[in-house]
Each structure stands twice: as C-alpha cells, then as structure tokens.
C-alpha cells in the first residue's frame, strides 16, 4: 500500500478541481462567469504543470491562459452584447 504524501494529495485535489472547473466553464449560465472560471481553470492547470516539472509550459499557460485569453474573451463578449438599440 503506497503512502500518499501531502503533495500528492493536493495534486489529486487540484486535478479534481480542474475537471470541475472545466465542466463549470462550459456549462455555467452567464458568459462572463464562464470566462472567469476558465481563467481559474488555467491557473489550476498551471499548478499541475509545475507539479509535473514542466516549468516552461506552466509559465506559458499562466501568461496566456489567465492573462491573454481572458482579455480576448472579455473584449469579445463586450463586442457581442452592447447592441445599438439595446434590443436582442
């Protein structure tokens, strides 16, 4: 019976949270909510990458997933919500 260390336990918890946040990002009502949850998902996967010793990938995922992609999504949502007469 292998002993599970605290680091491994937190790793498994983060993996579980990763799956939950992915499902929430796809299915939560409200687009902005989903985008913020997506950036939480990115941060969690950054931690997983760092635990799997992929430091370069972790850095790229942190910067792109949590920074750049969120900015793009929020901009696009802003561009597809404010319509001219407030209708639709």
């Amino acid at each position: 019976m292998p002993v599970i260390t605290g680091l491994e336990l937190s790793y498994f918890l983060i993996l579980g949270a990763l799956v939950v946040t992915a499902a929430a990002a796809v299915h939560m009502p409200g687009d902005l909510t989903a985008v913020i949850i997506l950036s939480v998902f990115s941060v969690l996967s950054t931690v997983v990458f760092a635990l799997l010793q992929a430091v370069d990938v972790a850095m790229a995922e942190a910067v792109i997933g949590a920074g750049f992609m969120t900015a793009l999504f929020v901009t696009a949502i802003g561009k597809t919500r404010r319509s001219a007469g407030g209708k639709r």
């Binding site: 750049f68 793009l72 802003g78 561009k79 319509s83 001219a84």
Partner: peptide, 11 residues
C-alpha cells in the same frame, strides 16, 4: 490581435 478585436464600435 487584441487591438483588432477591441478596436470596433459595438455594431
């Protein structure tokens, strides 16, 4: 890319 995406009046 961001500037192209954001640089529009909202329709």
């Amino acid at each position: 890319l961001y500037i192209y995406l954001s640089g529009h009046e909202a329709s």
